[in-house]
Amino acid sequence: MPTMEFQGKQYEVDEDGYLVNLDDWNKELAGHIAKLEGVDMSDAHWEVVNFLRDYYQKYQIAPMIKILVKEIGKAMGPEKGNTKYLYELYPGGPAKQACKIAGLPKPTGCV
């Protein structure tokens, strides 16, 4: 199993670089993954990440994009409640990239 090194510690990741253990996650590590992804974390970015983690705790899966969009609209104002805004924050995709930074497993999307 591949690993990722951060501050002298090894973390298990899958073949696409997603953390394997949810509990390995912390804010510093998230910041590090974001840097590798080329994402500069602002408050808005953290809003998404925090929501994803809360949601995952409750439902054991990342939310439908629709739910994320609505939630961000609620938290940051209706003009930001759309997929376009989420893609501006996470050009690699709100599901794929934001989940990676939030330490969630790679989203399976629809099978």
Binding site: Y59, I61, C110
Partner: peptide, 12 residues
């Protein structure tokens, strides 16, 4: 396939 739990299905 997605691993949706019962409460997740209902909430979706």
């Amino acid at each position: 396939h997605l691993g949706l739990e019962p409460h997740t299905i209902k909430s979706n």
